[in-house]
Write a protein that binds this DNA or RNA. Sequence first.
DNA 1: TATTGTTTCCGTATGGCCTACGGAAATGGG
DNA 2: CCCATTTCCGTAGGCCATACGGAAACAATA
Lengths: 251, 251
Amino acid sequence: MAAERSGGGDPARTLALLWRTPAEPKPVGRKPKVSVDQIVTAAIAVADREGLGAMSMARVAQELGVGTMSLYTHVPGKGELIDLMADTVLQERDLAAEGTWRERVKHYADRTRAVYQAHPWMRDVSMVRPPLGPGLMDGQEFVLAALADSGLEPRQVTVAHVAVEGFVHGAAASEVDDQQLAAATGESGDSWWGARQVFWDDYFDVERYPAMTALWNAGAYDTEGTLADNMRSSFDYGLDKLLDGIEGGMR
Amino acid sequence: MAAERSGGGDPARTLALLWRTPAEPKPVGRKPKVSVDQIVTAAIAVADREGLGAMSMARVAQELGVGTMSLYTHVPGKGELIDLMADTVLQERDLAAEGTWRERVKHYADRTRAVYQAHPWMRDVSMVRPPLGPGLMDGQEFVLAALADSGLEPRQVTVAHVAVEGFVHGAAASEVDDQQLAAATGESGDSWWGARQVFWDDYFDVERYPAMTALWNAGAYDTEGTLADNMRSSFDYGLDKLLDGIEGGMR
DNA sequence: TATTGTTTCCGTATGGCCTACGGAAATGGG
DNA sequence: CCCATTTCCGTAGGCCATACGGAAACAATA
């Protein structure tokens, strides 16, 4: 399937849901069996356990013990529900750190990474047209405040922000991708690569790939950790180098 | 839908397809109406036009004027077809550049970016368990050769490689995400943001978001270009800073 | 030409998905 | 009791991947 799309529908309705604008009390009419919060919570639970692909309207309704179509009374559609899910888990970040601007940016990256770890389906949510809710906005404010304290010019802050934001979400997503695939297919990344040993035996050509061969012979791939360990250290390394570059560009 | 998954199935069969290992000629039996190449080409054409979500087996078969099930004679399943599509478009990169190691890495980033631009559905293809075909491998060889010339220690080359590869694919993906959404929904990114003007009017709180407000007042968001232009310069900026950091770390 | 072995083609069927529509059911006030 | 209002949800239409097995095409042989 292609990536889950959100951000559709009527902006006013979606924003009201994201910010939980309390509709004026309606003392008249049948009592609701479920609330928006319950729907979002149930949807997150399903996606956490079985992935975003398994998060169907029918599945969520079943989880709550109501009919499928009942959900549409509270939520305009699946796209908007995904918006609500994403903003909700982004609110789980605890962004109240002190320290230098670098420490704060790294804290932000760490907390965001934790969200992806806890909710691997975030990999499948596009962030180019993000849910403009409190979860996203609080995060933006936090990073921008940190970058603004770095001494960069205002215009540079916004450019650096896009780069940092892109790196953090991208790295967290690809790190989590492995786990998500492991859960979905029942095969770990290490085992997947192991099963592709045939490739090195039957297809790899040392003459076509001299640089890779040289690195291999130099022991560059003799790592002790698992695939997940390596992806974790690459995340930290890449962010460090990016911040080094941003810092260096200020001089 | 969640991200399209590939890399499943029997490794030996998939590798044989990726490297087009010619099965021994079969002069006996009914003549095939379609070839693997035709199927892959048709699938890419559909995905280019209508996105990976529209690339169904039925749709591809229709494109070729054959029955849906005929495809399964030549390709094990949809996952493997996506593997073949991805490796095929990665082969479109022309990676024969001269220059310093930095110039070559930037050339690689530029060519990879071009692939995503031409085939936006690549955003939806996971690269954590990549198709081990010539398209992917030639790219890896090219970057590793460049990084190995930078003077980094072998072990450091592999770490930097993961960071660069992650950045390039991540940035190209999010850049293209916007265009893909524009094509799928018929609404451009600029127009989408315009429709969310309500947010700034009704929900944005200057006291809750002082850093954003200050940047706004400083004119940091007074850009003349389109959203696409800004994403493009962020791509270049981020890669530059990342390479600065890698270079600086060698000292 | 008729037969046989081999390969490809593809119709059918199963079980899933989202959501438009409209009627039934519940609730509080008069 | 009646009625306005709100929520609940069954049905139905049109998508999807792919397992299965028989029909059809072709080359070599008799």
